[in-house]
C-alpha cells in the first residue's frame, strides 16, 4: 500500500463539511452498534423512548418493575425502553478501471473519494463507526473494519485517499464478500459506476439485506456516458483493459442511448426491489448537494424537503 501524507486530504472541503455538519446521518433500519448512540437499536435499552410492557419473570431487575401498573392490576410488569446505539458506516468503494473516467483531478474515483470522505467525517463526528471496503480487481482489499474514534477516522480517510482505480472489478463478488465480513445491522454505502450487467446485482443486494444491513447506493455516471454526444468517429479505449473499439457515434448513438436507458431502468428496479436507497449521480452535480439531498432524505423529519429538492 502506498504511503500517503496524512495531510493530503484535498478531497475534504472544510466549508462543505461545515455546511453538512448540521445534517444528521440517519439509518432507516435499527442498527447494532457497540456503544450508545443516536440510532435505533433492535435491543431494549435505557433510552427515554418507551418500547413496551412485559410480564416480570424471575431474574429480571426489580428496579425496572412498573409499580403503577402493579398498583392498578396487581400484576408485575417490566417497563422496557428503546435502546439507542451508534451505527457502523461501511463504505464499499468501487476501484475498477472505469472509475478513472474523467479529467485528471475530477475522475469518478475523485468524486467517490469526496463523497465517501465527507460521509466518513460526518459519521465520525456523530460518534458512529466507519469502515472502508475498497472493491478492487481481487475482491475487497485492504479493507478497514468499522471502528469509532478520531484516530480511526484518520486511518479511514488515509485509506480513502490511497484508493487508485485500475483493473477489472467484480463488484458483485465484493458485495457478497462484504456482506459476510460486516457484522449484522450496519449501514452499507456502495459507491460505483455499476458498469456490469445488472442482473447479478440483485442477488448481492439481497445478500446484504439478508444480513439486515441498511443499504444506500450512489451510482456515479458522467453525463457524456448517458447522452453520448460525440459527433465524429472515435476510438474508445477501455479503461478496464478491454480491446479498444472504433465507432462512428452518428451510427450507433441511438442504439447506445437505448441500451443505457434500458440498463438504468433495470438498476432502478433492482434497487427498488431490494429496498436500496438508490441515488443516480451525474458528476457535473456538486457532491455537497448530492450529499445534502441524501442526508435530508434519510432523516424522517426532513425527508419531504429532500424529496422536493431532488
Amino acid at each position: 500500500m502506498a504511503k500517503t501524507d496524512s495531510n493530503n486530504r484535498d478531497f475534504l472541503d472544510p466549508k462543505i463539511l461545515g455546511r453538512l455538519m448540521g445534517l444528521p446521518l440517519d439509518a432507516r433500519h435499527a442498527m447494532m452498534g457497540s456503544v450508545s448512540g443516536r440510532h435505533r437499536s433492535p435491543v431494549r435499552g435505557s433510552s427515554l423512548e418507551f418500547a413496551e410492557y412485559r410480564e416480570y419473570v424471575p431474574g429480571d431487575d426489580t428496579r425496572r418493575l412498573d409499580w403503577r401498573t402493579w398498583g392498578r392490576s396487581d400484576r408485575y410488569y417490566i417497563k422496557e425502553f428503546e435502546a439507542d446505539t451508534n451505527l457502523r458506516l461501511c463504505l464499499i468503494i468501487d476501484t475498477s478501471g472505469s472509475m478513472a473516467y474523467g479529467e485528471p483531478g475530477q475522475t469518478r474515483l475523485d468524486y467517490a473519494r469526496q463523497m465517501s470522505g465527507t460521509l466518513a467525517y460526518l459519521a465520525a463526528n456523530q460518534g458512529d463507526a466507519i469502515g472502508v471496503f475498497p472493491a478492487g480487481e481481487h475482491g475487497l482489499h485492504h479493507e478497514i473494519p468499522a471502528r469509532r474514534g478520531p484516530l480511526h477516522l484518520g486511518v479511514a480517510l488515509d485509506r480513502i485517499a490511497e484508493l487508485e482505480a485500475g483493473g477489472n472489478t467484480d463488484l458483485v463478488a465484493s458485495i457478497h464478500e462484504a456482506a459476510e465480513k460486516i457484522p449484522q445491522r450496519a449501514f452499507v454505502v456502495i459507491i460505483s459506476d455499476l458498469f456490469f450487467q445488472p442482473e447479478p446485482l440483485k442477488e448481492a443486494l439481497q445478500h446484504l439485506r439478508f444480513r439486515k444491513h441498511d443499504i444506500a447506493m450512489f451510482h456515479l455516471l458522467d453525463r457524456s456516458e448517458i447522452e453520448f454526444d460525440f459527433d465524429r468517429p472515435t476510438k474508445f479505449v477501455d479503461l478496464e483493459g478491454g480491446a479498444p473499439l472504433l465507432a462512428d457515434p452518428t451510427l450507433i448513438g441511438k442504439k447506445y442511448r437505448e441500451a443505457v436507458a434500458e440498463y438504468l431502468a433495470k438498476v432502478s428496479a433492482i434497487c427498488t426491489q431490494t429496498g436500496t436507497d438508490y441515488h443516480r449521480v451525474t458528476m457535473d452535480q456538486p457532491y455537497d448537494q448530492t450529499l445534502a439531498r441524501f442526508l435530508l432524505g434519510r432523516n424522517p423529519r426532513t425527508k419531504k424537503t429532500a424529496a422536493n429538492q431532488g
Binding site: 469518478r108 458498469f195 465524429r232 468517429p233 476510438k235 474508445f236 479505449v237 479503461l239 473499439l245 447506445y256
Partner: peptide, 24 residues
C-alpha cells in the same frame, strides 16, 4: 481519411458501446 482522423477517448461504459455496435 475521416476514419483515420478519429480521436481517442478513454471510455468506461464499453458495455453499452459493444451492445450498440452489435445491434447496428
Amino acid at each position: 481519411i475521416n476514419q483515420n482522423r478519429h480521436r481517442t477517448v478513454k471510455w468506461a461504459a464499453m458495455m453499452f458501446l459493444l451492445d450498440a455496435k452489435k445491434l447496428t
